[in-house]
Computed example of a mutant assay.
Amino acid sequence: MTTPAGFAENAPDAHPKGLQQAASAVAREGRASGAFCVQALRLKVDERHWLDVSFALPGQTRAFVLLLETHQEALQNQALAQALTARGFGTLTASLLTPEEHTDAEELAWHVNDLGERAATVLEWLEHQPFRGALPLAAVGWRTAAAALIRLAARETQTFYALSCLEGRIDLAGAGPLLALTVPIQLLTSSATDDKPNLAAWPHIGAEKRWEHLPPPTPAGPWPEAIALTCEWFERHLPTTPSSLAAAAG
């Protein structure tokens, strides 16, 4: 029997419990003041492809953030996820390219249609997880994944409270999704970004928006300016009332 798209399983080196059992166990053991992570989770998006995803839940989860990358941003995205979790945001990090595709990431990362389909599958899976609950949702998109995120948010008009696009190529989303966007969006770029395409796309956005030019990130470390602005953006636009981990886990 084939496994349906959107099915997730733990890789051999992952946490031994399933997702729901892991969340419930943390709540039962009374570690609500900390955070727990499930790593090496694989999510099936079609008959041949599995994506690496991981999630973290603080004890008092105020909201949830979906972080989409295309592998080359993994270290910076991990630092961002840790900062968000420390501020009470649950996070789901998803690489939109499979491990086997990483060697061709420079080319495949430009296939925005494929990235968008995978992003939609990740969101659908997240929306059916018990730890998701009714928590408000925001999202981060790195580079070309930002275009896939904008397309997703333009379709799912009631899903996201805010978006943050880091080194984002928002122009690749297309004029239609940019015009249809109603979610507050932040664009963070640096001297490493070619701003010309984004300059042409920016006026199409009628939603609340902010564009900041920052010092470039270090190649193998966090991007502190982007982390601070993304956390601030989400704290501004997301509700602040936390819900307990036990309630989120069901």
Rank of each mutant, 00 (worst) to 15 (best):
P4M: 06
P16G: 02
L19W: 10
Q21M: 10
A22F: 07
A25P: 01
A25Q: 10
A25L: 08
V26P: 00
V26N: 02
A27W: 00
R28H: 14
E29K: 09
G30I: 05
G30Q: 03
R31T: 12
S33Q: 07
S33D: 13
A35H: 08
C37K: 12
L43I: 05
L43N: 02
K44I: 04
K44S: 05
K44D: 01
V45D: 06
E47M: 13
H49R: 15
W50F: 09
L51D: 07
L51F: 09
D52R: 05
F55N: 04
A56W: 07
P58Y: 06
G59I: 06
T61G: 12
R62K: 13
A63C: 06
V65D: 05
V65Q: 10
L67W: 01
L67C: 10
E69W: 01
T70H: 00
Q72H: 12
N77A: 15
Q78H: 14
L80H: 08
Q82Y: 11
Q82T: 12
T85D: 02
T85S: 07
A86M: 08
G88K: 03
G88R: 01
F89H: 02
F89W: 00
S95W: 01
L97G: 06
L97I: 06
H102P: 00
H102S: 12
D104V: 00
E106W: 09
E107T: 15
A109N: 10
A109I: 11
A109R: 15
W110T: 10
N113K: 11
E117L: 10
R118H: 09
R118L: 07
A120C: 03
W125Y: 14
W125P: 04
H128W: 07
Q129I: 05
F131Y: 11
G133V: 05
A134D: 15
L135D: 06
P136K: 04
G141D: 10
W142L: 06
W142G: 07
T144S: 12
A147R: 10
I150A: 11
R155C: 08
Y161R: 15
S164D: 08
C165R: 00
C165T: 08
L166Y: 10
R169E: 05
D171L: 07
D171G: 15
G176I: 12
P177H: 03
L178V: 09
L178C: 12
L179C: 13
T182E: 10
T182W: 01
V183G: 03
P184V: 02
Q186L: 15
L187H: 00
A192D: 15
T193L: 03
T193N: 14
D195H: 04
L199N: 13
W202F: 11
H204K: 13
I205M: 11
G206C: 01
A207E: 02
K209L: 01
R210P: 00
W211L: 09
H213F: 08
L214M: 03
P216Y: 06
P216R: 13
P217A: 12
P217V: 05
T218L: 13
T218Q: 14
G221K: 11
E225N: 02
E225I: 01
A226F: 03
A228Y: 01
L229P: 00
C231H: 04
W233T: 00
T241K: 11
P242N: 03
P242V: 01
A247E: 13
A249D: 00
